[in-house]
């Protein structure tokens, strides 16, 4: 009996000794697993007892989906605060799912903010505008939290760019977000993102911060040299034509010396045509 008890203790001790390094190695492979440890009191309060139990049973993804469906219902009934609370819980449960951050922040910054700005129950314009700004800010904060959780992914940077451009009217911030997205994007969307960053950077320089005009020109010039300069002029499509026009305009605005221009003006012919 004593021998068996000793053996049991030995087996448990051996298991405990091997467990910690084994689990540390598993956690290193899966950062999502490490983040999943955040089933805290705040989370339990947000999602209720029933879903907490499901959460503890390992059905994290399923709980996130159920809350997403609940958020869908709240959205249909225009219960914006409930919708926001559900979104907070969903993104907390599956912080690595890009579309949750993306769609949730979009609903807050676009739909909820629009509803606040046209709220028939609020007659004061100033209050409506303030509420609108608060919802946009809530969307932005959510998106920025998504970026903090997924710093290596480009998708949320692009979405932040669109939000800054369209809802906050900050083309400079949008340009910086798009440039951050370009840095992280290796897929087929890179072409489009590179141009998007250029457009916003140029807009930032022309409308908000003229000091960045040179930066915008350098950006377009480098992009043209890298991606577009190989194509013969006769094969240019709408994008090529558009970019070349933008670069020429920037060269003129910045008074770039002819010798340094990508598109120098055609020089007049040295020989004088003979009079007929």
């Amino acid at each position: 009996m004593r021998r068996t008890a000793l053996l049991i203790v030995l087996v448990l001790a051996l298991a405990a000794a091997v467990k910690a390094p084994f689990e540390a190695s598993l956690a290193a492979d899966r950062p999502a697993l490490a983040r999943s440890a955040g089933v805290n009191i705040k989370m339990r309060e947000q999602i209720g007892q029933g879903l907490s139990l499901a959460l503890l049973g390992g059905f994290r993804a399923l709980v996130a989906d159920l809350l997403w469906i609940a958020a869908h219902g709240a959205w249909e009934e225009r219960r914006w605060f409930t919708m926001r609370q559900d979104f907070e819980a969903v993104t907390m449960l599956q912080p690595q799912a890009m579309f949750f951050w993306d769609l949730a922040s979009w609903h807050l910054a676009w739909n909820a903010s629009h509803a606040a700005s046209t709220d028939p129950a609020e007659p004061r314009l100033a209050v409506r505008l303030r509420n609108q700004r608060l919802w946009i800010q809530a969307g932005r904060e959510l998106l920025e939290r998504g970026i903090a959780n997924n710093p290596d992914r480009f998708e949320l940077y692009e979405k932040l760019g669109w939000m800054l451009k369209q809802k906050i009217e900050d083309p400079c911030g949008a340009a910086d977000a798009a440039l951050a997205a370009v840095k992280r994007c290796q897929s087929w969307q890179r072409d489009y993102l590179q141009r998007l960053a250029g457009y916003w950077l140029e807009e930032c320089a022309r409308e908000k911060n003229p000091a960045r005009l040179r930066e915008a020109y350098d950006y377009w010039r480098d992009l043209w040299r890298r991606e577009y300069s190989q194509r013969p002029r006769e094969h240019w499509d709408t994008i090529d034509k558009n970019l070349s026009k933008r670069i020429q305009k920037l060269e003129a605005d910045l008074a770039v010396p002819e010798s340094e221009r990508l598109f120098p003006k055609p020089q007049p012919s040295a020989t004088i045509p003979a009079k007929s």
């Binding site: 689990e23 899966r30 390992g58």
Partner: peptide, 18 residues
Amino acid sequence: WVVPNLAAFDLADDLFAG
């Protein structure tokens, strides 16, 4: 120290992490 980490076997989260 004693109970195995059963959450380690749930790969649903990783399926959507990209």
